[in-house]
Write a protein that binds this DNA or RNA. Sequence first.
DNA 1: CTGAAAGCGCTTACAG
DNA 2: CTGAAAGCGCTTACAG
Lengths: 344, 344
Amino acid sequence: MGEADEQGAPRRATVKDVAALAGVSRATAARALNSYGYVGEEAAEKVRAAAEALGYHGNRVAQALRQGQLPLVGFVPGDIQNPFFARIAHDIDVALRARGLSLIIASSEEDPAQERALVGNLQALNLRGMIVAPASDADNRHLARAAAEMALVLIDRDLDLACDSITVDNRGGAREAVGWLIAQGHRRIAVIHEGPGLVTARQRLAGYHEALRAAGIAPDPSLEGLAPSTVEHAIDATIRLFSGPQRPSALFTFDSQMTKGALLALRSMGLAVPQDVSVLGFDDFDLATFTDPQITVVAQPVGQIGALAVQMLVDRLQGLDAPPRRHLFPTRLILRGSVARKSV
Amino acid sequence: MGEADEQGAPRRATVKDVAALAGVSRATAARALNSYGYVGEEAAEKVRAAAEALGYHGNRVAQALRQGQLPLVGFVPGDIQNPFFARIAHDIDVALRARGLSLIIASSEEDPAQERALVGNLQALNLRGMIVAPASDADNRHLARAAAEMALVLIDRDLDLACDSITVDNRGGAREAVGWLIAQGHRRIAVIHEGPGLVTARQRLAGYHEALRAAGIAPDPSLEGLAPSTVEHAIDATIRLFSGPQRPSALFTFDSQMTKGALLALRSMGLAVPQDVSVLGFDDFDLATFTDPQITVVAQPVGQIGALAVQMLVDRLQGLDAPPRRHLFPTRLILRGSVARKSV
DNA sequence: CTGAAAGCGCTTACAG
DNA sequence: CTGAAAGCGCTTACAG
């Protein structure tokens, strides 16, 4: 606050002030400040000195208005607290910075209405482009509109929009995972998913059903638990699934937050993994190899998504005019110790 | 894309277009669009219809230039991937949104130079305020400058600047933790810290030293490992600390990422926790109670920091003119199973 | 209730 | 090499 006025903002120096102090025109000052066009060395020197003396730094908002856009890219993850998105946010940040762009993150908290508002905000900010993990695939006119106005890359969840996207083979990954559980003798396999509003959840659920059917097992709705992807909600869902009379022998969780919640819940219920319950999770995580047992997972190539998203975005900014590119990453089943063979 | 020109941006409708279509002046259109001042119902209706037809949405950049500032607040965490900061980012986001402000996150990656650049960028964006976890306390003229121009709240790491701050009792927490290890009979207590460039690290180190001295134990530099706060670096540091001939009997890590790394490393070295090595970490984390053993930690009130930071910031935006407020949260030692009594 | 006009801070053809 | 002037899209006193 210091000597600031009550709004905390003493008037900032502008090009005009700098020009006046340096005794040149605003045009010359601007040229010297941004080093373009012709400026006499002497004039340039005076301008630099004046700018220094006044603590001048450019007003990006004005520049942006004049030049068209802010050197910003927006990222709208489903939930910034989810390590999956946090990792991607970090990677996007690094990749963007290397190209002189800054990142603005606005998390949708998996709320479609909030996402709509955020995307509108970001668009109104006139930024260069956006990377979005759509919270829903129900009503995406706001994304369609955004795609028409700026570069847009969808990650994690694909939609039928005219823009690039990066996804992971959710269906295949889930099918492989559940197939493995079945191969180990499990038949009552519970799942926790985020609900049919999310494409990823639907795809993983489809993979789960496919694997079951391939083995001649009829899907049982009572084995399908629903929970938003947080540790807390997953704890509740797990308790519900495993409190009934006919306990499932295995659990397939749809992401790492859920896996953590499930592990915590099973422990609190006195159920041992994998003796009492086998656990397999989509999404690898830090401590998956430290827990006892280590957790068997379907790993996604998290480390590659952010950089690729930025690459795709920048391609578009540079004028690439190609039909929508849809990149699909494969998943990898990593066998560890949380799945036991079921002796029938 | 779509019918866009090669920059991906068909010209957006402006107030002027809307006004023209509605057959009114730009002033009237603006008034109707933002519902302020007097506008005839009939005119307003025509404007709204025109706006709808053109898919008009305001240009925030222009508004900001005219009105002074963007309704944005910046957050500069040390590392967005660290769950501690991710959690705070999430809480800030929620608190901000409730007040009609949006969050822009730009992670410093704990690099002071990068932080300087980012803070400059954010300032040039003319936003309302910033919440920063300073990456260093060496040269903070950029933060002093920012504090003079806009509301600034420091979190996690305090500096001697004229602005509000929120910190945690690092010294006290570390002293209590190490005191507990000593009370359990440990004398060779290793630490992993982020280096003296970080205030938090210095304070926790001071607490560690105090506890040692209080027990008449001379600090041993060879027990003090250094590592940036990531799982990977902590693994290396742990291996270095525990490969020597005279193995420490306990390890105190300075944050949850390090704790995870240490656990992974000790396991890979075949050292059992707590039988071979006792582990105590600063910062609680999700799976601390699922690992075997559960991990004893010094917990910080993470859940309160984000909301308080926003509150402090908003107070300033509303004109609060008080001397810098420095909020210090206490820590809490949570005893779990990763520390064993050392039989001498 | 409405419009003409100025101006936020900047950049950029256009003359000189 | 430099300056006067226009204009980015918007809002807001000021007249009417």
